[in-house]
Design a protein around this nucleic acid. Structure first.
Lengths: 170, 170
DNA sequence: CAGTTTACGTCAGCCTTGTTGACATTCCAA
DNA sequence: TTGGAATGTCAACAAGGCTGACGTAAACTG
């Protein structure tokens, strides 16, 4: 596994980008970048009594309005108890609305209220602003590569969720 | 801010990659990919009584052996109390060694013991394996773009830390 | 040399966010 | 009608952030 001699060539293609050093750079890039990625929303949320978990819930409810709790659970990858605690406060604070399903009354369909949409926009704007700057700095080809690698890094089920969200809302 | 009409062209260059939809895809890609990124080490650590915080400490001590507590603090971006809790257990368990500085005796220089290096290798191998697969799947050009965008996404001081680690150990 | 600053450790307490386990309710479907 | 699925809730707990306060030793500085 710990193969530092990956500077081989086969099939005519250089594999220099697969050295442990290259891989480690990618690992550290992910670590540092993710910090930046969450920094702006975190700052906004710190003032309110919300955290990153609330942001995630708000983001995906906005992204797929009417989604069920179970669906959201799968996307967020947390337990229903964890999610429920977050949803409870968001509903109590009037940011999220929970509507009993019409076809299946066990299900709860989640929607953002106007206040919820306002907060979503505020958080989203901050996060997008950073993304936009990064995209601009790196250029379109880099962005394409960025997405390719990230997608390849996901677990299979997360990748399905990602692609579904991406292609489901054109 | 929420400009959905970014499909403009100026200076002859398409800015289609800067639409809100494109940016949102990037945001979700980061979210889902980061989950995959941490999944393998998390699984390994779950069996022991360690968490992601221990992994981070071990990673950067391995990366910069002899680093001081203050230095590590800056890289990890946590409080000294938080880091201390983690370091204390790692030192107690014989994975990390803390040596009093020779020039400045206030400083503690951190090193991995053999056991620490073994765990680091185990965690690192798992994480690199995933990176390697992703890199292979996406190809060298995508990897270059991936790193460019991530670097552009970092806060200025994190970017400095990243570059320093990257270029300091060639 | 005296006083201040720096580096580090630690105690106490709080918060968010994750976990498991147990249990109730509602309702669909076989 | 009964089993299972979807949801919600209570309780208890742990990891890992945070702040504030305090102590010690070493280094720096006027």
């Amino acid at each position: 596994m710990s193969d530092s001699r990956a500077a081989q060539v086969y099939g005519g293609e250089s594999l220099l980008f697969l050295t442990d050093e290259q891989l480690r750079q990618g690992i550290e890039a992910m670590f540092f970048a993710y910090r930046g990625f969450t920094a702006d929303p975190d700052r906004i949320l710190a003032d309110m009594s919300y955290g990153r978990a609330h942001h995630r819930a708000i983001h995906f409810i906005n992204r797929a309005p009417g989604t069920t709790v179970n669906n959201l659970l799968a996307i967020l990858g947390v337990t229903k108890q964890s999610l429920n605690r977050v949803l409870r406060t968001l509903i109590a604070d009037g940011l999220v609305e929970s509507r009993v399903g019409k076809l299946d009354k066990r299900e709860r369909h989640l929607h953002l209220t106007e206040a919820g949409q306002a907060l979503e926009a505020q958080l989203s704007d901050a996060q997008r602003a950073r993304m936009r700057t990064a995209y601009k700095e790196a250029g379109p080809e880099a962005v394409a590569g960025f997405k390719q690698v990230l997608e390849a890094m996901m677990d299979a089920d997360m990748r399905r969720a990602y692609v579904k969200l991406r292609d489901g809302t054109p």
